[in-house]
Design a protein around this nucleic acid. Sequence first.
RNA 1: GGAGAGGUGACCGAGCUGGCUGAAGGUGCACGCCUGCUAAGCGUGUGUGGGUCUAAAGCCCACCGAGGGUUCGAAUCCCUCCCUCUCCGCCA
Length: 423
Amino acid sequence: MLDLKFIRANIDLVRQAITNKNEKADLDALLEADEARRSLQHDFDTLKARQNKVSQEIAKAKKAGEDAGEMLAEMAEVAEQIKEINANLSQANARLEEQQLRVPNVPHPSVPVGFNEEANRVVREWGAKREFSFEPLDHLELAEKNGLLDLPRGAKLSGSGFPVYTGAGAALERGLINFMLDMHIRDHGYTEVAVPILVNRKSMTGTGQLPKLEEDMYHIDQDDLFLIPTAEVPVTNLHAEEILKPDQLPLKYVAYTPCFRREAGSYGKDTRGLQRLHQFNKVEMVRFVEPEASYTALDEMLGEAEAILRALGLHYRVLELCTGDLSFASAKTYDIEVWAPGTGKYLEVSSVSNFEDFQARRAGIRKKDPQGKPYFVHTLNGSGLATPRLFIALLESCQTPSGGFELPDALKGHLPPGMGLTP
RNA sequence: GGAGAGGUGACCGAGCUGGCUGAAGGUGCACGCCUGCUAAGCGUGUGUGGGUCUAAAGCCCACCGAGGGUUCGAAUCCCUCCCUCUCCGCCA
């Protein structure tokens, strides 16, 4: 959420941001609602002041045994007016909030303007596409050969996009999660948290998934709870409505959670195997930092996500997303795409974003400056990493001519022995 | 799910026979004073958001879990919901 004062003072900038991000927020409606609200608020305050004052006089008069009939009559009327204005004010506030929640974050000036992935900039590449002396199989064929997945049975249980991992496949999935968690905890200084994967509406609004993405999420009607699309939601909201202690920043959390996405409207796109799922596992890093430190933190987190792929020896490239590809809440985002030689594509395994104070303002995450004035902190998050596409790239990259695998040493200690995958 | 108790400022805790309570008292914290050091002591200050104002000060409005209601006036009375604790039931 943007500061109303900021919006008022930077209307053109915000309008441009909406356009560049392909959003549909109605700034005029917002400004109008703001105007109405402020006018009503003023009337309300004036009447309230009058009421408070006279009410005290009534109390005094009664105490002195004087007649307060005239004042009472006036106040009956004032109370009536207040009630009416208050009703209008509530409406105006609701209307304003509705508009305000739909205004996206403003992209950082360094973000390339563009409306599709062609405008994304490749920042760097690491490693090289692996060359094979044989025709590499894709992950589905490899999984089949080695009994790592049972997608048909997943579909039987829940529908397509709900994978079943079997045997060594399940062990590898679990091993990858542990490997990544351990690395972020041990090498990158994160604190692990295990959080709910069902959250309420307020949390979803705090990080910016709501109101825009309601259709993309699984919702439990009975309790009005949502299955999280990313651990970003519960982890960032950990400190919602808090004023952090002076020495509390930076905060660095890492969490493993399953993630759920309805992927409404993307049927038939990249659906082969594990490429696009309704349920998947992800290790997510979240940081709360001082405003002036957030872009340094963004670079660090990107490096921490990359470190996973480097440790696994997987070729990848880093993309700087253009305005049109930025998420609603993000000011700047890097994507990491890993090379999957069997599939023959780069697959997105990580997204690292700086939200600046956008989420903090929505969720009420603040800290006090030395003078004691509260300000909003900056929040960031980054996948580190999402497993399905990592699983794909790993299998396809590490396959041997016989259809087996030679997995990287880094996974030693994270795979149970005798699973056919041990390096 | 049933019965009961309760949700007040950073924390503890009064207020809850409606008005002078944004909220006593204490702790903590900050600054100042005092003090061989430490400890103790004294003084002052110490919520958030909005508005008014060139700015500060000042003044005004809102907020005592959330939302409604009663009333001229509610932290205080009534209703609904949420949460916490205790007991019972049920179940991984």
